[in-house]
Design a protein around this nucleic acid. Sequence first.
DNA 1: TATTTGTGTAAAGTTTTATTTACATTATAT
DNA 2: ATATAATGTAAATAAAACTTTACACAAATA
Lengths: 65, 65
Amino acid sequence: MKNRLKVLRAERDMTQAQLADLLAVSRQTINAIEKGKFDPSLPLAFKASKLFETSIEQIFLFEEN
Amino acid sequence: MKNRLKVLRAERDMTQAQLADLLAVSRQTINAIEKGKFDPSLPLAFKASKLFETSIEQIFLFEEN
DNA sequence: TATTTGTGTAAAGTTTTATTTACATTATAT
DNA sequence: ATATAATGTAAATAAAACTTTACACAAATA
């Protein structure tokens, strides 16, 4: 699963730590998701979509397999 | 998190077991999600959205707290 | 009545997501 | 040049999602 978190952060001049705070997760979690180490939970994906005022589908790109 | 899986199934005359098969999870997982015992993973939410040809947001209703 | 089908649930175990602590590296600023 | 901020990563642990097996119950059906 790819995602646009890094770009969305950059557009808002936001650090991983700031995003982590806003989403109430650890900085390492944000880093791991950005680097594709694992997928966020659905609740976390929803929180990100609300924060960035867009849909989950516009942030996370699902790829089968 | 609420969801419309039961209705989406009913509209298609689909059992929990059939949906589980199509999403490649166990019947108990579908049941647990429908009953709100836990949230699906993001990949599973995506699979459901593709299967029902709609968005994640139209299937799963996020509620803070 | 007996059987089958669909659903609800529970316990034990595995896998995945997320945390905490910690340290290394890169870039920026003083 | 040195300090500071931001990022990458790793190991150990905790929490959540998911599996497997198993059983109970209600409704439909043979």
